[in-house]
Amino acid sequence: MLDKSTFTHLPQTPGVGYKPQHFNDIISDPGSVGWLEVHAENYMGDGGRPLAQLRHLAEEFPMSVHGVGLSIGGEGPLDGDHLARLKHLVDWLNPASFSEHLAWSTHDSAFYNDLLPLPYTDATLARVCAHINQVQDLLGRKMLLENPSSYLAFAESTWSEPEFLNEVARRTGCGLLLDVNNVFVSATNLDFSPQGYIDAYPLDLVGEIHLGGHDEDHDDHGKPLLIDSHGRAVVDPVWALLDYTLERSGPLPLLVEWDNDVPDWPTLEREAARAASALDRVLVEVAK
């Protein structure tokens, strides 16, 4: 068994994506929540309340820094200024984990504030690996790479997504962040079995699991098109896919993401409590 402490020190408990409006609730009673994740880019200002809150939270909770703007899959070089800001944040906070996405968001100096898709080709593989090596060398730590939500496919792709991620991890030594909602969304949108994806996925390299809500739309042919919106509760089939995954992976740090139409704290904490019971079921199995 691989030593996961090379890429994560998060506890095997539920965490939530931190929202500033929950600060007082979290400090007074975090309930089932054992750790917090923040988006790196929201803490790259010079000072003020965001950094003061982060300093306070980091004294009480293990923290995960989750980047959304590095553009790991970008065709151009990584943004040096942004890398320097990331290093400053990670050196200062010393989080239990740093993760980013298999995606791109910057082209020709413009940042599009979305996780844009990549063709799974040898050229993409070489570029993503080079960028991850650069990030890991700079930060002096291993990172986790998250699987995306897919709405379409590239005709030019020659790798399946689990194989592609496995190869990236093998070449760079990074760990993986498995978003089971993204798996469910992509599987629905691109007609594959989500359980089959999990079966093909290198679960021994997973350092963290993400759960989130999605919206439903449809494509030109009336087929369902799910959209990874992080704006509502996790749906039952995704909880079931989490159970399927945990039965095969054993307990892992679980994160509930709710970034839009953010609910009150009790609602978010209930989602974390549901994640806690999923973990408890696996622990019972392990103990048997």
């Binding site: 898709p117 379409l152 496919a153 590239f154 030109d220």
Partner: peptide, 22 residues
């Protein structure tokens, strides 16, 4: 044209998800 759905048809509306998100 290299963007497709699972049945190799043009991505169509699916691409609008990115247009809309941004």
């Amino acid at each position: 044209q290299g963007l497709r759905d699972s049945q190799n048809r043009p991505a169509g509306r699916r691409f609008n998800v990115y247009r809309n998100n941004v």
